[in-house]
């Protein structure tokens, strides 16, 4: 069964070494690593790599920070509020395509709720998915959808902490922030690393939501790696380049997985 997945992936690597266009009659031509060189040298593709990096850093750091603060709020004040927790986790339960359509409704220029709200406070409507804003909008939507997962994992980790530990800390005169920093944070470090890996993996491959919202536009402003795989292979019919782009994505994901597995093996606590 692993073979079923690994053969196409290997095939993908082979394709990526060819100049291979689906238009015209030209046979695929072996060009070695030229596709990869092109990705690194052409500003168009290099910007995609950088943009994907920026996207991952922005979304993951915001998700982990917000997710941690929300988990802390739940842990401290509402540890038994099951319904509240379930409601907070709603964005995580719906799929990327649904998220895409929800935000198409809200961010629409004519009659979207966001522009109506701006109107209430006397600001002119804004093209949320237009030039200069689209990137930040899709970043915000990603944070909206994926922060709940961080909250879930970190909250679960906090719940397993023995309460004596915090009591001991507060008897010793530790202030709240000190408790958080020197007791809670080190104790849930494994959970932190887990969500960090998961969120990074999923941020790198972001596709469906952005495709629904902008299709990578305006221009290339929201073109991440996964989006450009589609644009190169299925819109420009340059399958060699598309395969090379998707291999960049695979290599990044593989690198993160290996890092995580090595870290798992090193740390016996997990």
């Amino acid at each position: 069964m692993v073979v079923v997945l690994l053969i196409p992936i290997a095939n993908n690597a082979w394709i990526s070494l060819h100049e291979w266009s689906l238009v015209g009659d030209e046979a695929p031509r072996f060009i070695g690593l030229d596709n990869y060189v092109e990705i690194l040298q052409t500003p168009r593709w290099r910007n995609t790599l950088l943009r994907t990096g920026l996207y991952v850093v922005l979304t993951v750091s915001a998700q982990v920070l917000l997710g941690f603060l929300i988990a802390l709020l739940l842990h401290r004040h509402f540890p038994n509020a099951k319904v509240a927790r379930m409601l907070l986790l709603m964005p995580m339960m719906i799929s990327e395509v649904v998220v895409g359509n929800i935000w198409r409704l809200l961010l629409n220029f004519n009659g979207g709720l966001f522009n109506w709200f701006l109107g209430l406070v006397g600001i002119d409507p804004v093209f949320w998915l237009g030039p200069g804003r689209a990137f930040w909008s899709v970043v915000a939507v990603d944070i909206w959808q994926n922060t709940p997962f961080v909250t879930l994992v970190l909250f679960a980790a906090m719940q397993t902490l023995p309460s004596e530990l915090l009591e001991a800390a507060s008897i010793d005169g530790a202030r709240r922030w000190q408790q958080v920093r020197s007791v809670i944070m080190p104790m849930i470090q494994p959970a932190f690393l887990l969500v960090l890996m998961f969120q990074t993996m999923f941020a790198i491959r972001s596709f469906s939501t952005i495709w629904l919202l902008t299709e990578g536009g305006p221009g290339n402003e929201t073109s991440l790696l996964a989006i450009d795989v589609f644009r190169a292979a299925l819109q420009s019919y340059d399958v060699g380049l598309g395969a090379a782009l998707s291999w960049c994505l695979l290599l990044l994901s593989l690198g993160i997985t290996i890092l995580y597995i090595r870290w798992l093996k090193r740390d016996p606590l997990v």
Partner: peptide, 15 residues
């Protein structure tokens, strides 16, 4: 590990 790999990597060969 194989589940961790992004399905986008399958798009071109499967197509």
């Amino acid at each position: 590990t194989s589940r961790m790999l992004p399905p986008v990597g399958l798009v071109v060969p499967l197509y």
